[in-house]
Nucleic acid binder design. Structure first.
Lengths: 196, 196
DNA sequence: TGTACATCAGTGAACGCGCGTTCACTGATGTAC
DNA sequence: TGTACATCAGTGAACGCGCGTTCACTGATGTAC
């Protein structure tokens, strides 16, 4: 028996509400402290309905990465590749899109920044894995021959810049953006110039 | 009435046990998820005895920063200043001392890395405040005229390097250390040379 | 077409459990004189 | 010096509460024929 599109959509809607509710609460109280009942309450469903979507909060956390973080990183990688292909500055494009993401979805970005260095090894591994694609994209788009770890360091600065932007007044984000481009550029540029 | 040194010492001993127990648990499960009873159990005292030392877990968390993180950062600042004063490389000195701290007290450093970008705004503010002293020390010790935000970025890389070292095989920490010196140097060096 | 059956997201009641917190007490130690 | 009192870290019992989880049920929707 196959489900109808309408039922699937409705189920997906509630599942998404649970993910968003968790992000909302995690942004201020931390993902680690959240309980199943808390997430369900915030999402507007009964506690027992939680189990229709996830086995437990751990499974929901995993879904946060695969359903929300992964598309975001994929988009940033696409932005980098598109910029590089059209002769534009991939670094600036990625930073600007990242700052737009901070404005669009601060809760998701707080989650990424928090769990990237957080106590949960599974989150750390998953996020590092995701971000390695962005590292690679920035690496190939950078002029000259910079080592891989320099591109990794640039992504680390990007994450920190996102964290700073999350706390900053929106008007102060322009300064953060410029400083971020400056420091990332230092890491992604071979001072000896293009001598490939 | 003043307390005797012996009683003070004993009280301090239990207080320290609570702080260490919390760090131990926080390293794997996250500070945010910890409860008062959990910390007391790990420290080997009755739950009610917790209140003889801290009002709640929030007060204990604050003490983690002031009692443990602050001295650590102070030591790193001292290392930087001492190296600079004796004509040695402050950057290398700080990185090496940081790596030693990873080996000495991984739980404390996991806490610092986790809460630096974590969901608790009070921790973020406290840690940024602490680390600004290290940023300043590295800034004045760096040759040429680099902007302040470049020194801040270097400290961000240091924190990330600490996080990587925490997860790495001890034999792989040498590589991390060298890459860290390399990338931090890029940020702390003015490519135009010393033209003060 | 209508009718009988299957699926399944959502739910309320109920459970046992660990939580934070209060309270009164103990016993070791310090102070007064 | 001895004796009476004060301080205070540690404790066990007890509390009310919210937690995760189970269960049986509802009702809307899909399928079979």
């Amino acid at each position: 028996l196959r489900e109808s599109p309408e039922k699937k959509e409705e189920k997906e809607r509630v599942r998404h509400a649970l993910l968003r509710a968790t992000l909302r609460l995690a942004a201020t109280h931390g993902y680690a402290s959240l309980g199943l009942r808390e997430a369900a309450r915030e999402a507007g469903i009964a506690p027992t309905s939680f189990y229709r979507h996830f086995q437990d909060m751990g499974a929901l956390g995993l879904a946060l990465v695969t359903d929300l973080v992964e598309p975001l990183v994929r988009e940033l990688v696409g932005v980098a590749q598109q910029a590089a292909a059209s002769g534009q500055d991939a670094l600036v494009a990625v930073v600007e899109r990242s700052m737009a993401a901070v404005a669009d979805d601060p809760e998701l970005l707080r989650f990424v920044v928090a769990e990237y260095g957080g106590a949960f090894a599974s989150f750390r591994a998953a996020l590092r894995s995701q971000l390695s694609a962005l590292t690679a994209a920035l690496h190939v788009a950078s002029p000259g021959a910079v080592p891989t770890f320099a591109a990794e360091a640039a992504v680390v600065l990007l994450l920190d810049g996102v964290g700073r932007a999350l706390e900053a007044d929106p008007t102060a984000r322009g300064v953060i953006k410029e400083q971020l481009v400056h420091t990332m550029r230092k890491l992604l540029t071979n001072p000896a110039g293009v001598r490939a």
